[in-house]
Write a protein that binds this DNA or RNA. Structure first.
Length: 862
RNA sequence: GCCCGGAUGGCGGAAUCGGUAGACGCAGCGGACUCAAAAUCCGCCGGCCUUGCGGCCAUGAGAGUUCGAGUCUCUCUCCGGGCACCA
């Protein structure tokens, strides 16, 4: 038998699936549906091996469910708007559109060599006008439904390039191109009112039982529901209109420990005080010379400026607290103002020490409470603590009880109210960029903000734009920008901001159910296909993308674009890990820099060293990290498919690491996968593909043992695939392979071997589809595996009525005993105590205790 | 800084409920076949002690709960993801 030749056989089956339209599906009420969706890629240019992993995982599920009788929707598309296309335009003078569509064409061709069971007839890119036209439609409906609002928020502003920067374009506080110090600037923008839905989005997490617990927890924390006290301080010395200062606190039980108040540099009071106070104005300006990212604000050194104002402590007569402007207060959370309780909040304590403010204890010192070492005592909310300054209630309470008591007390005295607050902010969707979905709005001097009538959609992006200057080209494209007002006809301006690309990816899953419709969705198709039964993607999307999609599904329901029951669009979620690779590099002589080399340029030795093929000299071998272009530790898909075939790559991806963990791509691992497929192929030499399956019934001895293993493997692999434990499924298939040879000479052995190999082909099919189709066809089967049902195990062959129990003495394994699976405790105990190994330790004495866990273990305690 | 994960042989990992730690694979070593090599096949493969039987140690570190802990609790270390304009 010749070697298995992937480069001939893989295209053959790909062509078969394509001409047979094996994976194209339509709504069919008579068949149960299964919607499996892989997060669609950003068309960055090439498919790398990390994509192969992601899409292989989804493909295993899709093919498996298909063979289980489901009508499987498994679509693919492109998340095609974004910053990278504009960067390419600026750097390489390529239009974002041609850059994007060229990349899509290249990546589509690469994906098709992997043998993925996508329904390509449903493909779209989010930058297709047919797609974003429907998105504009959704925007208008959401605007009308009150789900969209307009307000001010802060952006990163590059004062040299006169442009808004994304957080990733701010490097150490400087604009990445200009190098200028970035500052925060307020801009009026469009917002989805997601915060209105905060509580609903939080409650519904409870129902997402097939999501990873960590993702549910991250979403809960992100929404950040809290109950606290909101009240107004009376101010002293403040300008007119600021007679009170409203603050919010989640720990009103520490109110009597307050020793200062602080406001955000962006707080209206801080702005009002700038007038005639140049030092404060300078401080505020300094604070604004920081980006908008929360990480940057939190990591920055805590600094404050004494405004000279004070507020009156409402519960401590005569006590005035100084008011500071502080750089760590976020204007977007709570009221943008706080009071500080240094004794019981580390950040407040650091601040108090720095500015010489008093530290007032609210709790009795406890063991481990060592404020002396400049470490605040933050009391737990759920355990009782002793208060020396309770606002109300007994001395000893849990934090939660004390918070409740404090709120009740303040409400009774008329100083504030208990309120529920959320960390979740509204979702700003405006982007000052070209390569995104235009917002269908016109600004008219007469009528104000005017929605574009639906009849005028789509608002298409103009293509004649230039990127020779920074800023949004739509702003300077007057022919596109200047239009008559749709309402009064007066000269007006289009909205030149485009939508955040998260909008594009927040409803694409719904669009796949009717991708060519002239409406965003089609009711019957959405009703049939939604929700996504299995969603698969990276953990990096655990919060934003998934939360926005959950919001959008609700918004689409409210606007009639999704039927009832679709408020949670992803019934099950799986988050997969990344593909990593070693880095190869050499320090650049005389410079503080290194040159990286591609894995292809290097010969990696078994002893951990490597040499550069070009000059035969050694290179450094660095750690295995996430594949990235900059470190050159990327493996291109084409080379692997050409050398080993897609099935080898797929098999390797699935065999080593569990799919939710990172996997290291190694050449040796790929070769191992390739050798395994070849070994399975060679079994065709030893196993008669025409042997009579009637011999199965008389299998005995090793042949019967093989049959049992075959059928137990069916059950095991089925459970493993359902549980995303593909690496365990692969291990089981290896074990079955290792067992095949032993049956050859036993009665019924030839038939048992044929059964085993045919079963292997069927079980391996979702993972290595081309290889197994070919293997299957060599047995003379006319129906290809793609049309075959998933194999079922014979229960008579999977039963096991004997079981081996380990015998422990004092918790250490000293022997084992084989018993009937249903043996009772007394029988097991007698057998165990009669063991020589046990008797040796007993030394004639009776054991203190014997623990028997039937079917599990025996532990003899001396 | 804040939120969320992860850590098991030389390497990837297995151990469904707290019950035989290291399944399966990779790498390595030894052997067979070969003029030789490749390919293939067979065997060994956590550490220490022991001729052997076997014993002791061992799941990032330290403590705790338990007859029994990789698994549960607490403290710590390191690594990764997210932090709202990367997608």
């Amino acid at each position: 038998m010749a070697r298995y030749n992937a480069s001939e056989i893989e295209p053959k089956w790909q062509k078969y699936w394509e001409t047979e339209r094996s994976f194209e599906v339509t709504s069919d009420e008579n068949k149960p549906k299964y919607y499996v969706l892989d997060m669609f890629p950003y068309p960055s240019g090439r498919i790398h091996i990390g994509h192969v992993r992601n899409y292989t995982i989804g493909d295993v599920i899709a093919r498996f469910k298909r063979s289980c009788g489901y009508n499987v929707l498994h679509p693919m598309g492109w998340d095609a708007f974004g910053l990278a296309a504009e960067n390419a335009a600026m750097e390489r003078k390529i239009h974002p559109k041609s850059w994007t569509y060229d990349n899509i064409a290249a990546m589509r061709a690469q994906l098709k060599t992997i043998g993925l069971s996508f329904d390509w007839s449903r493909e779209f890119a989010t930058c297709d006008p047919e797609y974003y036209a429907q998105q504009q439609h959704l925007f208008l409906d959401m605007l009308e439904a009150g789900l969209i609002t307009r307000k001010s928020s802060t952006v990163n502003w590059d004062p040299v390039d006169q442009t808004v920067l994304a957080n990733e374009q701010v490097i150490n506080g400087k604009g990445w191109r200009s190098g200028a110090t970035v500052e925060r600037r307020a801009l009026t923008q469009w917002f989805f009112r997601i915060s209105e839905m905060a509580d609903e989005l939080l409650q519904a997490i409870d129902g997402l039982t097939r999501w990873p617990e960590k993702v549910r927890l991250m979403q809960r924390n992100w929404i950040g529901k809290s109950h606290g006290l909101r009240f107004a301080f009376e101010t002293r010395g403040a300008p007119e209109g600021f007679e009170t200062l409203e603050v919010y606190t989640t720990r009103p039980d520490t109110f009597l420990g307050a020793s200062f108040a602080a406001i955000s540099p962006d707080h209206p009071l801080a702005l009002a005080l700038e007038d005639g106070h140049p030092e404060l104005a300078a401080f505020n300006a300094e604070c604004r010379r920081m980006g908008t990212s929360e990480e940057e604000l939190e990591r920055a050194e805590k600094r404050g400026f004494d405004t000279g104002l004070t507020v009156l402590h409402p519960l401590r007569e005569g006590m005035e607290l100084p008011v500071y402007v502080a750089n760590f207060i976020l204007m977007d959370y709570g009221t943008g103002a706080i009071y500080g309780c240094p004794a019981h909040d580390q950040r407040d304590l650091d601040f108090a020490r720095k500015y010489g403010l008093p530290v007032i204890d609210v709790f009795a010192a406890q063991e481990g409470n060592d404020r002396v070492a400049d470490s605040a005592f933050v009391p737990p909310k759920t355990e009782p603590v002793r208060y020396i300054r309770p606002i109300a209630g007994p001395d000893v309470m849990t934090g939660s009880e004390a918070v409740g008591a404090a709120i009740a007390h303040c409400e009774a005295k008329g100083i504030g109210e208990g309120v529920t607050n959320f960390r979740l902010r509204d979702w700003g969707l405006s982007r000052q960029r070209y390569w995104g979905c235009p917002i269908p709005i016109v600004h008219c001097d007469v009528c104000g903000i005017v929605a574009v009538p639906k009849a005028d959609l789509p608002i298409k992006l103009p293509e004649d734009v230039t990127f020779d200057r920074p800023g949004n080209p739509l702003d300077r494209h007057t022919a596109w920008r200047d239009v008559p007002c749709p309402s009064c006809g007066a000269p007006a301006r289009r909205e030149t901001d485009t939508m955040d690309t998260f909008v594009d990816s927040s409803w694409y899953f719904a669009r796949f159910t009717a991708p060519r419709s002239e409406q965003p969705t089609v009711a019957e198709d959405a009703a049939y296909w939604m929700n996504v039964d299995q969603y698969i993607g990276g953990i990096e999307h655990a919060i934003l993308h998934l939360l926005y999609s959950r919001f959008f599904a609700r918004a689409m329901q409210k606007t009639g674009h999704l039927p009832a029951g679709c408020e949670e669009p992803f019934s099950a979620l799986f988050t997969q890990g990344m593909v990593c690779h070693e880095v190869f590099y050499r320090p650049r002589e005389g410079q503080d820099a290194v040159d990286y080399f591609l894995p292809d340029e290097v010969d990696r030795r078994g002893d951990g060293t490597a040499i550069l093929l070009a000059d035969g000299q050694p290179v450094e071998v660095g750690p295995s990290i996430k594949m990235s272009k900059s470190k050159k530790n990327v493996v291109d898909t084409d080379a692997i498919v050409e050398q080993f075939g897609a099935d080898t790559a797929r098999w390797f991806m699935l065999s080593d690491s569990p799919p939710d963990r990172d996997v290291e791509w190694t050449a040796a691992g790929v070769e191992g996968a390739w050798r395994f497929l070849q070994r399975v192929w060679r079994l065709l030499d030893d196993i008669d593909p025409t042997s009579d399956m009637a011999g199965l019934s008389e299998a005995s001895g090793t042949a019967l043992a093989l049959r049992q293993r075959t059928h137990r493997t069916i059950d095991g692999v089925t459970a493993d695939i359902e549980g995303f434990a593909f690496n365990k499924a692969v291990a089981r298939i290896h074990e079955l392979y290792n067992a095949i040879g032993s049956a050859a000479e036993a009665p019924g052995g030839r038939a048992a071997q044929r059964e085993a190999l045919e079963t292997m082909a069927r079980l391996m099919n979702p993972m290595a589809p081309h290889f197994t189709e070919e293997l299957w066809s060599r047995f003379g089967h006319e129906t290809p595996l793609v049309e075959m049902p998933w194999p079922a195990a014979d229960p008579a062959l999977t039963r096991d009525d004997r079981v081996t129990l380990p015998i422990q003495v004092n918790g250490k394994r000293r022997g084992e005993v084989e018993v009937a699976r249903d043996a009772d405790r007394a029988t097991i105990e007698d057998l165990a105590l009669s063991q020589a190994a046990v008797a040796r330790f007993l030394n004639g004495k009776a054991p203190k205790k014997v623990i028997v866990v039937p079917g599990r273990i025996v532990n003899v305690v001396l």
